[in-house]
Amino acid sequence: MTFDQRLLLVHAHPDDESIGQGATMAKYAAEGRGVTLVTCTAGEMGEILVPELEHLAADRDDLLGEHRKEELAAAMKELGVSDHRFLGGFGTYRDSGMAWHEDGHAIGDPEVIAKHPNAFWNADLTEAADHLVAVIREVRPQVLVTYDQFGGYGHPDHIQAHRVATYAASLAAVPSYRKDLGEAWDIAKIYWGAMSESRMRAGLRALRDAGDTTTFEGMDPDGPLPHFVSADEDLAAVVDATDHVERKLAAMRAHATQITTDGPFFALSNNVGAVAWGLEFFRIAKGQPGELGEDGLETDLFAGLSTGR
């Protein structure tokens, strides 16, 4: 099937896509726009929240990646997305693991990175980018969505996904580069997923007013916020997909080993409503903004682009 408008998302692990842009993905898929997801690892080092599946952990049977592959497929079915792939094919790159820095952001797990040569953090940048170049030239998306340079909160795989996506987008546009990977294609607009500071503060305030002091524990509605929160002045676009929130939440539920229904994401949704997860924000990294809405933000990632480009 050929779509006039095509969106490519590059994420690090299964579940990142549903949390970050699940509503946008569902909205665009429902509107008949092309949506392609590339996931860079299978999330083999993820925490397991289902007790009866703890044997899948990396230090036991090491089969979590296989299980999360099925969770991802179920989540994509909920979102209506049929084109989802693993970078280089399933198992090419492994979750690099993470630890927490004393400053509150994620860092790589040196033991995992040293033990597994195919940990995504160890990936040769050009080799990994070439896998994505082939996808870009095949799909020919007008819009790419990935993380910012810090990967939102410092996870090494998120940072690597940003690097790979950025480099691949550049290489894919060069007519003389790797002609065997397809005809050159220049992605018109690139966005970094973001979270609005004002929305995050409002959500936290609603939680605290409702007596919830444990969800996003330690975050003060009026205090410093984590690295993944962006100042509103840095935002370029917001996609209102509140009509598709239930599909996003269903996709999040499909990632059962990683997301629990009594966890912070669902607590926020229960206390703030559909707007908590139905409005998804973006920073623009390449291209010119199109028509702006009343709040000065684009309301469509394809704004300003001619169809079929």
Rank of each mutant, 00 (worst) to 15 (best):
D83W: 11
R68M: 13
A12C: 15
F86H: 08
A114N: 12
F302S: 05
T36Q: 08
S18L: 04
G32P: 03
E138Q: 12
I48E: 03
E217V: 11
M76N: 11
L87I: 05
M1W: 00
P224S: 12
G304P: 04
E47C: 00
F3V: 00
R163M: 13
L279M: 05
D15N: 08
R178A: 15
E47T: 04
L9S: 03
A129K: 06
Y93P: 06
G290A: 07
Q288A: 14
L144E: 08
I48V: 11
E217N: 10
A73S: 14
K69P: 05
A236G: 15
D148V: 02
T299M: 04
G308H: 05
E66N: 07
H105T: 08
G46W: 01
R68K: 14
A251E: 10
P264E: 03
A73R: 14
D209T: 14
V275A: 10
A99S: 07
K286E: 08
P51T: 00
R85V: 07
F216R: 04
A30H: 10
A134S: 14
L37W: 06
D16M: 01
D124I: 07
Q21T: 15
W121D: 12
V35M: 13
E183Y: 10
A129P: 02
A303F: 05
D243E: 15
